[in-house]
Amino acid sequence: MEARPTAVPAIQIRRLTTRFGDVVIHRDIDLDLMPGQMLGLVGGSGSGKTTLLREIVGLLAPSQGSVRLFGQTVLDSDPQRRRLLRRRFGMLFQQGALFSALSVFDNIAFPLRELRLFDEALIRDLVLLKLAMVELEPRHCRLMPAELSGGMVKRVALARALSLEPELLVLDEPTAGLDPDRSENFVRLLKALQNELGFTVVMVTHDLGTLLGLATRLAVLADHRIVASGTVDEVLAVDHPFIHNFFGVRHDMAAAGPRAS
């Protein structure tokens, strides 16, 4: 949809430092993400990508520095404000994190029911609409999470993350565990939804196809800090061993076929 008139960054990270005991994970990280952008966060294993993601959504408090979403601190001391802010973003966990005791329908309806604003008929319509958006059918409603395939779990989790109409979507390895075909489908679906709904995306992924298929911006985490950030081409121009290693494959792929573009 339309870009918001005010230019408040969706994510603003300032001088963020994370330490676990004596181990430093991040040192003085700065990061900005404007509404409507799709940021891919890459880095070697153990470079603290998922940790940074958890700090963005407020599951983990950074040792120093601040994280602001839409201009507000995530870990606000006022529970009411914190709750309102948390309704403005949705998170897709790596394993889906569906509530295993609830059916697909109840999983997607859960955040809506928690609002206590809508009657069941409206919630039902909303859930069915979200299901249709992630290309699932109404007959899947009654299934339990344990009965779903990996790709369906991701779709249901996405529908749940989208149920409160988030302005920001946080994706942790959105295509991990999916075969290339499904992962490509999922990327296509995410992209179409982003076009339609206009949310901001920040994601962590190892999969180059997902990354280059979705992200409009990249940030590379290495040596405890962000060594490069910007558009894909800007990042590729940076001279850093990790970038050479990680995207070396991409040049081969680009030479081999058009999929990477």
Binding site: F118, L129, M133, L197
Partner: peptide
């Protein structure tokens, strides 16, 4: 200026 699924459903029904 902005219409999301909740708004659309409220209108539709």
């Amino acid at each position: 200026s902005r219409l999301d699924s909740a708004g659309a459903i409220v209108l539709w029904r």
